[in-house]
Simulated assay, not measured.
Amino acid sequence: MSTIFLDVSRLLSRLYDGQLPTGVDRVGLAYIQRYGSDARAVLSERGFLRVLTEKDTKRVFSWLMSSAHDRHEIRSLVARSLLSRFDSTHTGRGVLLHTSHNGMEYPRYYRTLRQRQIRTVFMVHDLIPITHPEYCRPGVGDTHRRRIHTALRHADGLIANSRFTLDSLSDEARRADLPLPPNVIAHLAPGIHAHSDSPSPLQTPYFVMVGTIEPRKNHWFIMHVWRRLVELHGSAAPKLVVIGRRGWECENVVDMLERCDTLRGTVIEASDCCDETLQTWITHARALVFPSFVEGYGMPLIEALDAGVPVLASNLDVFREIADDLPDYLDPLDGPGWLARIDAYTQSDSPARAAQLDRIRAFRAPTWSNHFARVDAFLAGLA
């Protein structure tokens, strides 16, 4: 295989800021684990890029895989790399794999790599800012459209995380009258291990909701479901553990978390969870609740099922693509339906929960080995 180049700009920036990995970041880390022994790291900013030396590449990959870092060392390495003269330490052919959306919108990024005979392959996680801009920060939809359109015009290949994402990408290409580059669908594996040996963090029944607090995740709706549970059951109501940092356009959810007396002590916010703590919360939950309006994939869903934990999820096509009929599906606005299902799953002898536990014994999560087998075959075809 020709030399692999990995753009780690987003990963290194988030490590510098001390931020825990999101689902997108976990994919990037999996690519370092797969290709890092022979790959070269790339840093980019607004379409300008540098290929790191072999020595600096090893340092950066080591920092990212261990999460150990020194802000001064990172700042020094980035400054030295981006301010150096044009790097000519690699002139042969290769393939750049870019697993985040950051920087896709700059044509000069593609031109620079093409001058070096390096093909560009981008992973597309979703088109949500284009298809559902109402759930995103103002302006993000326009930026994402530029990213996707630039990739459609200039990328040598695209990796989609799901059939749903590829269909959305194909629809956008048709609408914009742009060509669809060669592509492959490669489902993502769980980002955390399946089980935790730690004891349950709570002695009462609880549910988990995993993901950044943002409008499309539907936290505000689920908060009202939980307020109703407390009104019905008082202190006997199950707990809800909200795992994920506060994102954008979520002031109404923050108001519920901080100012709703009814939910105090029943809804628990866990914004900064390491992998071990996240595993423990999921493993002992009555179920994962996943009431999103739209998703490009749904890594928490497969992480829960892989741990043998039931899932209550929105009736989304992409969830059925990756989990078939194993979870219990509900309309994301069906308040009485969610209330009744959560009520039922709280009970220790719940027939509905037992039935799902029976179904998910047959679940086999996507694996990174299968993911990279598809990616490697795709790259070989491009060559």
Rank of each mutant, 00 (worst) to 15 (best):
L257P: 02
L312R: 01
S314A: 14
P238N: 10
D272F: 12
D328G: 06
D328M: 11
A313T: 11
V253T: 13
W226Q: 07
V253L: 07
V289N: 00
A270D: 08
V241C: 12
C273S: 12
R264Q: 14
L263E: 04
P238H: 10
I322R: 02
E214K: 04
M256T: 04
T283V: 03
V253G: 01
A237L: 06
E214Y: 08
I268E: 05
R216C: 08
E214H: 11
W220Y: 15
C274T: 15
P300D: 05
I222H: 01
I213Y: 05
F221S: 06
L232K: 15
T280C: 15
L278D: 02
V318D: 02
A313L: 10
W220N: 10
C274G: 14
D328A: 13
V225A: 10
E269W: 15
W248N: 04
C250M: 12
L229R: 07
G247Y: 08
R264E: 14
G298D: 05
A323K: 00
Y329G: 02
H284C: 08
D275M: 06
G298K: 00
V225Y: 03
L316K: 03
A270V: 13
I213T: 04
R246E: 13
L257N: 07
P291R: 01
G244A: 06
L301F: 09
F290E: 00
F290P: 00
T280V: 06
G244M: 03
A285T: 05
D325Q: 14
S271K: 14
D275E: 13
L257D: 04
T283F: 09
D324F: 11
S314K: 04
P300A: 08
A237C: 11
R264S: 14
D261L: 11
R216V: 08
W281D: 02
V294S: 06
R286H: 10
M299R: 05
I268L: 14
A270R: 12
C260A: 11
D272S: 15
T283D: 08
W220P: 00
R320G: 05
N252V: 10
E231P: 02
P238I: 05
R216S: 08
L240T: 03
L301H: 05
Q279A: 08
L288F: 12
P215N: 09
I322C: 07
A307L: 01
A237R: 01
V230M: 04
